[in-house]
């Protein structure tokens, strides 16, 4: 096991003003008894609302925060006590903070990180060449980091985290703020990294395509507790999330409220466009389309997937 957490808990003391001079001391559990383990080569999506306890967990896994109670082992090490040994075996990317030197060219940051990790030149140069080729960072290697765009910088951050070939890569919101192309390039790279090198990946994200593309397992945390541990289809099944078929018709038709296995959500343009929700465990898109086209003339259709926020919200409100 790469990560083993059992009954992990972290409290914070919150001091609040209560009246003019009095202050109260409240203990708030940011993480409240979480247990999970991640095996070598897995790619796990760690999701939850803001303030659910994602960052606190990641801080405990990476050794920059001590658990109030419970145990955690990462790569077989105690993250806080063996922080520097662990740092050689994991790579971390925080979307919001940079591990690069803002006033130095990107290449210089890599050289410094290699020195910090005490990597032999032969080893890290090959690795860097590989990352540069795959992430296409070559054109701006000589550019000072402060002049890079967010997408360029993020590719630099990921390279920086992988230079020492870590066993576990932790990414905190790696795609936040990136354009579609940059997101896709990053996902393809991470998928390849996992396939070719067997790197274990743990990532937090708000982006469903990140999960669909990369993760075979999802952990959902809510109010400091583990709300779900399983696959994405499993999660969708559990919450009963609905897919929606949107149909454009040749002629305006009366509302299709009685198609078997569906619920009519919306009728637009006087009946020219209709939205039909169906549950994937009860029927398939093909069956619905067949049922609809038997009754009306279809011009175009689209199926939309439930979005992650929606799925997670449903998990909390059954």
């Amino acid at each position: 096991m790469i990560v083993e957490a059992s009954d992990l808990r972290r409290d914070f003391v919150v001091r609040r003003k209560a009246g003019r001079l009095r202050r109260t001391r409240d203990v708030v559990a940011a993480v409240d008894g979480i247990s999970f383990s991640i095996g070598a080569g897995e790619c796990v999506g760690y999701i939850g609302a803001n303030g659910a306890g994602k960052s606190t967990t990641i801080k405990m896994l990476t050794g920059i925060l001590v658990p109030t109670s419970g145990t955690v082992r990462v790569c077989g090490l105690d993250p806080v006590r063996q922080r520097t040994s662990l740092a050689r075996r994991i790579g971390v990317v925080f979307g919001q903070r940079s591990q690069l030197w803002w006033d130095l060219p990107l290449r210089e940051s890599f050289r410094l990180l290699a020195a910090i990790h005490r990597l032999p030149a032969l080893q890290w140069r090959d690795r860097l060449d590989e990352c540069v080729a795959l992430l296409e960072t070559g054109p701006f290697l000589e550019t000072p980091v402060r002049q890079l765009s967010l997408g360029q910088r993020m590719r630099g951050e990921v390279t920086a985290a992988l230079l020492h070939s870590p066993e576990l890569l932790v990414l905190d919101e790696p795609t936040i703020g990136l354009d579609l192309l940059s997101k896709e390039r990053l996902r393809a790279f991470l998928a390849r990294e996992r396939r070719e090198r067997g790197t274990t990946i743990l990532l937090t994200t708000h982006d469903l395509p990140d999960i669909e593309r990369l993760c075979d397992r999802i952990l959902v945390v809510d109010h400091g507790r583990m709300a779900f541990d399983g696959t994405l289809p499993g999660l969708i099944e559990r919450v009963g999330a609905e897919r929606v078929l949107i149909i454009d018709l040749m002629e305006p038709e009366p509302a299709l409220f009685d198609v078997p296995g569906t619920t009519l959500l919306q009728v637009e343009a006087g009946g020219l466009r209709q939205h039909l929700a169906f549950r994937p465990e009860q029927t398939t898109a093909a069956e619905v389309v067949a049922a609809v086209s038997a009754r009306v003339a279809l011009r175009d259709l689209a199926v939309t997937e439930p979005d992650i926020e929606d799925v997670v919200r449903r998990l909390y409100q059954p």
Binding site: K59, T62, G63, I64, R83, T84, S85, A87, R88, V92, F94, Q96, R97, S98, Q99, L113, I116, H117, R118
Partner: peptide, 13 residues
Amino acid sequence: TGQLDVFLLRPLS
């Protein structure tokens, strides 16, 4: 700025 966390994630003091 979180720079101290970044320091803590590297194998140096």
